[in-house]
Amino acid sequence: MQKLLKNKTLCPLFLMFFVSFSFCKKSPSGTADENLAALLPLLNAASSASFCPKSPLPADIYLATTVVSASANVSGFSDPNKAVNGVCGAGELVGSLDVYALDITGAGATMILSWGGRTVKNVADSIDFIIYDNSFRISDDTNTYAMDPSVIQVSIDNTNYCGFNPSYTGANVNLMSSWLRFGGLRPVYYNMTTKPYTNEDLFINTGGSFLLGGGDGFDLEDLDPNDPNDTGCDNTVANNIKTTGFKFLKITSAANVNNPNTGIQFPWPPGSYNGSDIDGVVAREIQ
């Protein structure tokens, strides 16, 4: 939830942990009681999220369960197990605290997860996995979010990685429409305590590119062997992944990856002192 710490410092500290800065501003027309009443649902949601994740984890949710590599050490968010211990989203307006924070650049800007040796399948006519971060909306414009864009790549052997050729198309880092084929863009509605969806529920499209449980979905059919930032990917490797599935997932803060359109690294939201915040990854089917 580190994105919140860069915002307005006029809010009480406990609100800073749970509520986006747009809800820390005094209402020009509401009374104190009215403002508190409007704030309580957000605080309740954040409080409920604090009791997440469940233990044991639900067997029907196909979570990435194994941290293969992780070297970031962001104060307060340095436990990589937070990326595999369940998904604890807090909704459209609040991010989760149950996350592992990557660095913005360097070796700590990347982590690799797996499903404990199992394979994530390519399901026909469907997204195949969902990345859960802790993005949240920061204005009345539904396209404007505090985001942690991440570059997503997959591999069979943890050596040859193929990705989705992400693209940054705009000048405003907080506009979701500026980022194409990245993780870390959309809010997380799924919470194992307060919204215990089934695995099938999580993959229901509710309109556009939004899912019932939130997060960012990826379809293996969209793998692009021409992504210049991939390592060891070509048509053969990409087609093998599409046919047999993948075992390893690499997540990298976008600021640590070159934008092929400019030759320099992708931009990063100003004021953030860390990179992407990983809450979890769920596959559609595994074998």
Rank of each mutant, 00 (worst) to 15 (best):
A38G: 12
A38L: 10
A38Y: 07
L39N: 05
L40V: 09
L40R: 03
L40F: 13
L40I: 14
P41M: 04
L42M: 10
L43G: 01
L43R: 00
L43T: 05
A45M: 07
A46K: 03
S47R: 00
S47T: 04
S47G: 11
A49C: 06
A49V: 05
S50F: 11
S50I: 07
F51N: 06
C52K: 00
P53I: 05
K54N: 05
K54T: 05
K54Q: 06
S55H: 03
P58R: 02
P58G: 14
P58Y: 13
D60W: 04
D60Q: 03
I61Q: 00
Y62F: 14
A64C: 07
A64R: 00
T65G: 08
T65W: 06
T65F: 08
T65R: 03
T66P: 09
T66I: 08
V67M: 10
V67P: 14
V68D: 12
V68G: 04
S69V: 11
A70G: 13
A70T: 10
S71G: 12
S71K: 04
S71P: 10
S71M: 09
V74H: 06
V74W: 08
S75G: 15
S75V: 12
G76W: 08
G76I: 06
F77R: 05
F77Y: 13
F77L: 15
F77N: 14
F77T: 13
S78L: 04
S78H: 03
D79T: 02
N81F: 08
N81G: 10
N81M: 14
K82F: 14
V84Q: 05
V84E: 09
V84M: 07
V84L: 07
C88S: 06
G89T: 03
A90G: 02
G91R: 03
E92G: 09
L93K: 04
V94I: 14
G95W: 05
S96R: 00
S96P: 12
S96F: 09
L97N: 13
L97I: 11
D98L: 03
V99Y: 07
Y100D: 15
Y100E: 15
Y100H: 15
A101R: 11
A101V: 12
A101D: 15
L102F: 12
D103A: 02
D103M: 01
D103K: 00
D103N: 01
I104K: 02
I104G: 03
I104C: 06
I104S: 04
T105Q: 10
G106M: 09
G106N: 07
G106C: 11
A107W: 03
G108W: 01
G108P: 04
G108I: 03
A109F: 10
M111P: 07
M111G: 09
I112W: 04
I112A: 10
I112R: 00
L113T: 00
L113C: 08
V120D: 09
V120K: 01
V120N: 09
N122F: 10
N122R: 01
V123S: 13
V123T: 11
